[in-house]
Amino acid sequence: MALTREQLAQRVAQELRDGFYVNLGIGIPTLVANYVPKGMDVMLQSENGLLGMGEFPTEETVDPDLINAGKQTVTTVTGASYFSSADSFAMIRGGNVDLTVLGAFEVDQSGNIASWMIPGKLIKGMGGAMDLVASAQNIVVTMTHANKKGESKLLKECTLPLTGAGCIKKIVSDLAYIEIHDGKFHLVERAPGVSVEEIISKTAGELVVPDNVPEMRF
């Protein structure tokens, strides 16, 4: 069975380590915050200018001056700090964020990512995604393996305008955990109950398949 949104977030959360500063993108990446393993402390960075983002507020604690990069109202945790957007991207470009999680429309076997624009439709803008992918050392892309038409999103070469070039090394899709190196996709884990054949058939780029592909464990 393909992973649900929650399971995707749960699998990505396995990449967290105690003491990590983490930037989570909008959508499924945001859900990763719900699956931080017990006994582990991570600090969430929001690129508008907040380190130490907490849960959503109650009606009593909501504050229009306190939002995240998705413009949602949030709270802070102990040890949080506020800073300007220039400082925020200084910490991002400076390589201080330990893990960045974001979604994508397409990723290719060279590690290129397209996530911000579909020509012919409304161009909404890239926000902070280009800065994040250009500088982060440890990026996890999480997305469905194929689009709604069943077409692979793991390509030989991206067809959409790029967000970043040669920067993606890890993908958690609803079918598999895949790493990118040497210009190829490498199958590392499969979603529980998903066959290697299905993953191969839904991966358009070159996929290296080892003899043994373990199932993801939750």
């Binding site: 300007s84 957007s85 220039a86 925020s88 991207f89 280009m130 800065d131 250009a134 970043g164 070039a165």
Partner: peptide, 26 residues
């Protein structure tokens, strides 16, 4: 890109006319 925009303002205000950034390459 958001970080480039922030830096364009910061640098502009600081008398730095241009800068190199990895964001958006490619």
């Amino acid at each position: 890109p958001q970080g480039t925009l922030a830096e364009k303002m910061r640098a502009g205000g600081a008398g730095i006319p241009a800068f190199f950034t990895p964001a958006g390459y490619g």
